[in-house]
Write a protein that binds this DNA or RNA. Structure first.
Lengths: 208, 208
DNA sequence: CGAATAACATACAGTCTGCATGTAAATGGC
DNA sequence: GCCATTTACATGCAGACTGTATGTTATTCG
């Protein structure tokens, strides 16, 4: 018999505390930056003490990694939600691209995922995270396009990485106030430029 | 009359101290990272005290910015040295690309310029630095290619930024051990894909 | 040749990180 | 159901670092 609000299983306690820490850290890491956010501030916002933080996470970096992972997965889910797999290869790529750019407009996401993430965790670690989430659909889209011969055959890893890098930079520029149309046009031109046939119109047959 | 090694003009003292601080900081920032390098370590390596550092630079970030600026200029000079302006537009672009990738293989440069730089100074500040140095030749090469109708007309700012982003990611991947040939091939395919004519061969007329 | 200023050096306050230690709550075998 | 063990925290501490304030020495300039 439990009195009041107590009597929670250990697993629930861990899950709740970790979630609150990650949520508080996410808010602060997106509002400010990794370097400008201290662990005292995080635990205060989460309603725990620094002891809890260092019990559940090895260090500040590990908490940051958890936040990055969660946010990368959120972006990935928004992309997959917006791009049904039943389209033509090129259309799927474009839908995914727009979904990515839209997802990255959440406040602070670009700094978290594109600036602090690589600097704090390293590019290698970010590649692992990206390949587990967001880049997967991009790579699959590229492979599908290559298989349907609507894209020249190229090393898939490299192509995925470089296109992803272009998308990342576009997201940063757009957040900084650049023209969405300009960057979208260049991204489409880069993708269409990879098709073996001369890209005359977007769709095979369609008069404007 | 000066005894020993003393009697230096104030301007010389400033120049010498600043240079030594920047050199020491450059070594440490490329050996380790910005976050892992403390000002006590920097001034010890430079043979001065922290007082001198904070006399010449507003804070640690300002010293870091000076190092980034110097390193970006070094990269830019290596590119311009390797790419004579008398070639065809596409050849100039390729020569510049290879020079950039070669220049970025200096130890620690990728982390300094591509990871820590954007995270510490922000993408906007890095864009200003890049546009003052490295990106200039890239942008000029693209404009030249567009004027000679060997490249489709696109927003120049956006195209420069996105191609630069791809080059940056390629440099990071190569440093991480990826295949140079793969990434070079994709970069060339991205550039060649922007030409309005169907890209059959690299040069206008040349069998294989 | 002094007064003003620049180029440092030294000392200090505040903050942060990671760890070590202590305590309360849950778990699991008997 | 009870007790030993483990887990989930809280508290306190040591070391390091950043930025600034103050003091000192070397230049510059009228």
């Amino acid at each position: 018999m439990q009195q009041g609000s107590a009597r929670r299983s250990n697993r629930d306690r861990t899950a709740a505390t970790r979630a609150e820490l990650i949520a508080a850290a996410r808010k602060l890491f997106t509002d400010k930056s990794y370097a400008e956010t201290g662990t005292p501030e995080i635990v205060a916002a989460a309603g725990v003490t620094r002891g809890a933080l260092y019990h559940h996470f090895a260090d500040k970096q590990a908490l940051f990694a958890a936040v990055v992972e969660q946010e990368a997965q959120a972006v990935s889910e928004e992309i997959e939600r917006a791009s049904p797999p039943s389209l033509f290869a090129r259309d799927a790529l474009i839908a995914g691209s727009d979904a990515y750019l839209a997802a990255m407009r959440a406040p602070g996401r670009t700094r978290l995922l594109l600036l602090d993430g690589p600097a704090v965790l390293g590019r290698a670690a970010m590649d692992v995270i990206d390949n587990r989430h967001g880049n997967r659909s991009l790579r699959e889209g590229l492979v599908a396009a290559m298989r349907s011969h609507s894209m020249t055959r190229l090393p898939v890893e490299a192509l995925t990485a470089l296109l992803a890098a272009a998308f990342d930079r576009a997201a940063l520029a757009i957040e900084a106030g650049a023209s969405i149309e300009d960057y979208r046009a260049v991204l489409m031109a880069l993708i269409d430029g990879l098709s073996p046939a001369p890209p005359q119109a977007s769709h095979p047959a369609r008069t404007r």
